[in-house]
Amino acid sequence: MGFSDFVQLVVAGLSSGSIYALVGLGLVLANKGTGILNFAQGELVALGAYIALFYSIVVGLPYWQVFILTLLTTAIIGGIMERALLRPLLGAPHFTVVVATLAIGLIIKNALRISWQEAVSTFSSPLDHLMLQIGGININPQYAWITGCSLAIMGMLALFFRKNLVGKAMQAVAQNTSAAQLMGIRVSRIFTLTLAVSTALAALAGILMTPVVGVSAEMSNVILKGFVAAILGGFNSLFGCLIGGLILGLLEIFGGVYFGGLFKDITAFVLLMFILLVRPHGIFGTAEARRV
């Protein structure tokens, strides 16, 4: 492998890694914030992509408007999903909630398949078909945009959690729900907001992925990679998810090169098994007591 191939692999690996990080972060956020392990997160990625496709193809909006509108729409959908479908299950056994999210995922997936039957499977972005040439190395600017945008949004989210009172309230609810109630925080609103944010994160992954991989209901499979990223990162922090995602992205692509393309996915799961056996709390996680 030449140097330029190597650089390209790194760039591509980082970009898919940041997608995994976004998906993982959405999972962790919802789980820490509301106790829900949302198995519909993958379908929410696909939903975001389809909504963006709708705004782009049917409504005919330019990329930037599509981007913002899709995030808003999916945030609202996430909020409604929490209110209407998950809130009634508050306090239900864990297994019930898991099954409910699985069902939500299936419904979304099939609804997408039925409602969109057009052949066009992608929408255009300003970076389409461009190629960056840096010292004789071809780099798809989409990759740079995916990585940069994910990092920027995660950075903004980190700032929001660190500096904004509502962001802090979200963390408070995650760390101790009854104490948060005693602070006068309307916990139900925070739950809604948490699912809105985590759904918008899924949609962001969908929007970013689309120009590279196209839209399909099968995009939802990325949830598995999101899980691996989150678990690598200890399933409790934004930074952990980010690093977990990037590591997975890189390992996967280099794993594919050394063990063959069909073994790419297996790389991720071998890694997952290894981590679970050797470091069950992830690379950064500590053996903290679980939230009750």
Partner: peptide, 11 residues
């Protein structure tokens, strides 16, 4: 002020 403090430990 609840029993056991119930602080937000990571903040």
């Amino acid at each position: 002020v609840p029993q056991g403090r119930m602080l937000f430990p990571e903040l």
